[in-house]
Design a protein around this nucleic acid. Structure first.
Lengths: 145, 145
DNA sequence: TATTGACCTGAAGTTAGGTTTAGGTATTAG
DNA sequence: CTAATACCTAAACCTAACTTCAGGTCAATA
């Protein structure tokens, strides 16, 4: 069993955030001892799931919904599975978007390296939009498709 | 040259968002014809950069800063390059975080598939935390490290 | 004894990134 | 002529996810 301060340290989350999560219903089974929250391993695992679902782009109210399904028992296995499948698809989409973003960033890094070497952007502009070095052209095309 | 409505369609962004970006100074060279915004290829490329930097996690006010550097000319090449290097590192970090998130999501998908097949979570709980099938154990460990 | 530190609450405040509203102009279609 | 479109502005509004504040309890320490 851990206090809110210990959990805050372990997860590197402000105490105020943990209390906020509790108020929003993300720890439906959280116990208290004379008013003081006692975080068990269940709440620790819940926090891992919260961080996962949050990172996947899910809103707090929908994370709460998930924990309500957990409380409801085995009749909600299917809903819960579907939720995770959907978040998985969303994260895979987001990673694709980030790949494209990364290509643009790499292109811009090359761009400014060359601009610094040349003292101006004229040489680069003469290569645009399709006479860039092959590796760079790939990045440029990926970022501009 | 494009009108705001055309740009809105092309980038799939609300007109109100384009006007908001303009108000925030993200199109420092945007021209107007009797009050009406005229978006040139420069603004189109600016928008691609805006979307890239936004996706990388940069705030609007810092994107504005970048366009001020562009306006300032070749003396800011280094700053601009550093900005893109930093955003590149940030996106690479974020992708790592998403990989871990994805591992947790895949684990949970497996978890609920098995729970549905078994009708309960007992079999799974007996395997936790280190007697899971090898592939699944990898996901679990990645998500719990 | 008193003060420090860790916990508690409800309510108000904050921030980013837009969106909506209310009112106006200018061009074109019927 | 008038009515529908597409544009414009300033200012108010909105939402999510926290954070801060003001005031209070309780246990251990100096």
């Amino acid at each position: 069993m851990y206090t809110i301060g210990q959990v805050s340290e372990m997860f590197n989350l402000p105490i105020s955030t943990l209390r906020y999560y509790d108020k929003e219903g993300l720890f439906p089974n959280l116990e208290r001892e004379s008013g003081i929250r006692k975080f068990s391993d269940d709440e620790m695992e819940a926090l891992r799931v919260i961080e996962c679902l949050k990172e996947s782009g899910l809103e707090i109210k929908d994370i709460k919904q998930f924990f309500e399904w957990v409380k409801a028992g085995s009749s909600t296995y299917e809903k819960r599975k579907e939720l995770f499948e959907l978040r998985k698809a969303a994260v895979e989409e987001e990673m694709k978007a980030l790949e494209k973003t990364l290509d643009m960033l790499k292109f811009k890094c090359w761009y400014y390296e060359k601009a610094m070497a040349d003292g101006n952007e004229d040489g680069i502009n003469a290569m645009l939009p399709d006479k860039l070095p092959p590796e760079i052209q790939k990045l440029y095309d990926s970022a501009h498709k």
